[in-house]
Every structure is written in C-alpha cells, then in structure tokens.
C-alpha cells in the first residue's frame, strides 16, 4: 500500500531528513514509526501526504507514484488518506459536527448523507453526544477523537497519524491507540509515528525505528 524506494529528503538549507529510505507497508497493515527527535518520522509521513516532495527516489501510495501527482491533483490524492495530528488541527470556531463533516462536504455529499456518516464516525470514537459542542469545550483526548473521526469519516484506505498521543496521559493514549487498532481491523492501512515505546511495544504491530533519516535495523522487528 505504501512503498518508499530509495527516498531522500533534504529541506532547503538543512541536512538530509531522510537518506535512502526503503520501506514497504502492506495493504491492511499497521506499523509504528519511532526514533529520536529529528530522526525523520514526520518527514516520512509528510511525503506520504504530499505535504513535502522527495528530493530523490519514489513514494508509492495505493499504487500511485506521488511524483506523478501534480499540484492540482493533490487535493484529490489527499482525500483517499485520513490524517491525524498531534495538535488535532480542528477548526475552533465550528462545532464538532461541522469539523467532522468537512471532508464529506469537500467530497460534495448531500446533507442527509453527511449527517448519517458524521454520526457514524462520532459514534465510533464515542463522541456522539458531543456533536454540538465547540472543540475548545472538550478535553484534549476528546479533541483528538474528533480529529480521528474527521480522518476516518470518508472511509480512507490509509490512515496516518503523527504523534497522536503526544499530549495525552497514558490511559488516554492507550484509548486512542485502541481506536487506531479498531480501524486497522476493518482493513485500513495505518501508519502511526510515536515516541511512546512502552505503549506501542504492547500492541503486537511492526515497529520501524528511524535514526538520522535511515531505518535503524538494530531496533526493528515485530514485537509479539
């Protein structure tokens, strides 16, 4: 589902954030990205979402070479992904319902269908009763669940998350990770960047450790 072929990324004026990265994530797989700060986790996710472009090499997502996706086609490309961010990235002046409905409205769905799908997504993250609330009236963990509902509401084939539990206490963190596991169980390919080794170590999924823009082979493997 996601393939990195010899990918390098150098930011303007910076050192290489990724150097010769080779990676393969199968359809329906769930993997964790870990590694020290500055190892290139965020960069790797940004290349998947076309927030950044590789300096060298090729990234395939859902059989599409991202190098071939022109600027005008990026919105359409992103709509097949769901993205979750550490800082939630919710619209603070819209209700929970409006936030979650945004991807569907962009997709051009009718009102009834939007309502049905938004409520289904909110139900999955356990926030059905909060649909009329403003994001800032929610706890951090609830806000993150709104972000997840928004990411999955249009049934993406790939879900990527950059430190989705970065600001949460251990209990909330494991709740959030369990949500990702549930989406993975129904066939969504999931890639999560996380520092929280003690949490992800217990989940039985592949953990990819990055170091200085490369895969750190010593720390890789499937913890079962």
């Amino acid at each position: 589902m996601i393939i990195f072929e010899n990918v390098a990324k150098r930011y303007p004026g910076g050192q290489e954030a990724l150097a010769g990265m080779n990676l393969r994530v199968e359809k329906g797989e769930m993997v964790f990205l870990t590694g020290h700060s500055g190892a290139g986790k965020s960069t790797l996710l940004k290349l998947i979402a076309l927030i950044e472009r590789p300096t060298r090499g090729q990234v395939f997502v859902n059989r599409q070479n991202t190098n071939g996706v022109s600027r005008g086609r990026i919105p359409g490309f992103r709509r097949q992904l769901g993205m979750v961010f550490q800082d939630h990235k919710l619209l603070s002046d819209r209700t929970v319902f409006d936030n979650v409905s945004l991807p569907l409205i962009i997709d051009g769905l009718g009102r009834k269908e939007v309502g049905r799908k938004v409520r289904a997504a909110l139900d999955q993250v356990g926030l059905l009763s909060k649909e009329k609330k403003m994001p800032l009236a929610l706890s951090s963990g609830e806000q993150q669940r709104v972000g997840i509902a928004r990411a999955v509401v249009s049934k993406p084939v790939v879900l990527i998350a950059d430190e989705p539990t970065g600001n949460l206490d251990p209990e909330l963190s494991s709740e959030i990770m369990n949500l990702f596991m549930r989406f993975n169980e129904v066939g969504v390919t999931v890639v999560v960047a996380s520092h929280d080794l003690s949490l992800i170590g217990t989940l039985g999924k592949r953990i990819i450790k990055l170091a200085a823009g490369r895969i750190d082979d010593a720390g890789n493997g499937v913890a079962r």
């Binding site: 979402a49 927030i51 919105p75 359409g76 490309f77 992103r78 709509r79 992904l81 993205m83 961010f85 990235k89 919710l90 619209l91 945004l102 991807p103 962009i106 928004r150």
Partner: peptide, 15 residues
C-alpha cells in the same frame, strides 16, 4: 490556519 487545515483534508483551492 483554517485554510491550511482544509488543504490537509483535501480541499481544492476552488473550494
């Protein structure tokens, strides 16, 4: 901020 979020979610410039 709102515009950047909309772009992340896949909104076109026209939208």
């Amino acid at each position: 901020e709102e515009i950047e979020i909309a772009k992340l979610i896949g909104a076109t410039d026209a939208f």
